[in-house]
């Protein structure tokens, strides 16, 4: 419903725009700036993980998985894959909260395909400081239960080599083993923008 005041305001604006071209130009510039800002903000919102300004070579990390088998991140990358590396602990609230969405991200990434039987992108979660039993018991509570590789960093060697300063921290390595994205603190990995950021790295 348009009331008298609205009509009055519109009439004022119309008369002012025709009689004062500078006002028209000012409003035009303002709208342009506002649109630019909204675009920039939208662009940032589209990138939930932060791009690393100077991508650095990820440290070669070899750790036991839950079966005790040594797994090397560099071998995973040598197969051409993009790897999401998540550092976590079961007692850390944001780590617990993001784990189910990380499991769903793995399922989404699997659909990106494979090369010679190896996935083009995958998730690897590195647990900091806990034993197999604690990790197993926690994973059983997660729905969907994560079926990506879980490695155990019981002596904090990997977490230090990766320069992690707080949990959770997540990195994305490209196919050449360079760290391209980083997220400190929990994220909702269900955000489609995250899968898009990762898929864009697939060569």
């Amino acid at each position: 419903m348009i009331d008298d005041k609205t009509i009055f305001d519109q009439a004022w604006l119309k008369s002012d725009l025709t009689s004062r071209p500078w006002l028209s130009a000012f409003i035009g510039l303002f709208l342009l700036a506002a649109f630019g800002h909204a675009q920039a903000a939208g662009k940032d919102h589209d990138k939930p993980m932060n791009a690393v300004a100077n991508p650095w070579q990820a440290p070669d990390t070899t750790l036991p998985d839950l079966d005790g088998t040594a797994q090397s991140l560099s071998q995973l990358v040598a197969k051409g894959g993009v790897v999401v590396v998540n550092f976590w602990a079961s007692w850390c609230p944001p780590c617990r909260e993001e784990m189910a969405s990380l499991a769903r991200l793995e399922q989404t990434l699997r659909k990106a395909g494979d090369r010679d039987g190896q996935p083009l992108a995958r998730v690897v979660a590195i647990n900091v400081g806990e034993d197999e039993n604690t990790v197993f018991s926690f994973l059983g509570e997660i729905d969907p239960m994560p079926d990506f590789a879980i490695l155990l960093d019981q002596n904090s060697e990997a977490v230090d080599a990766w320069r992690v300063r707080g949990l959770p921290t997540t990195y994305v390595m490209d196919g050449e083993g360079k760290v391209r994205y980083r997220a400190i603190g929990g994220r909702d990995f269900d955000q489609p923008q995250i899968a898009r950021q990762i898929k864009d790295l697939i060569q």
């Binding site: 932060n50 400081g129 019981q154 949990l167 400190i184 603190g185 994220r187």
Partner: peptide, 26 residues
């Protein structure tokens, strides 16, 4: 060592660089 590792990571970081959307709890 196990409890010490948990203690270390439960503390708020002494130093950190936070990009947009980054956060820590400790």
């Amino acid at each position: 060592k196990g409890p010490r590792v948990a203690f270390r990571w439960a503390q708020f970081p002494a130093e950190q660089t936070y990009h947009p959307k980054d956060w820590n709890q400790g």
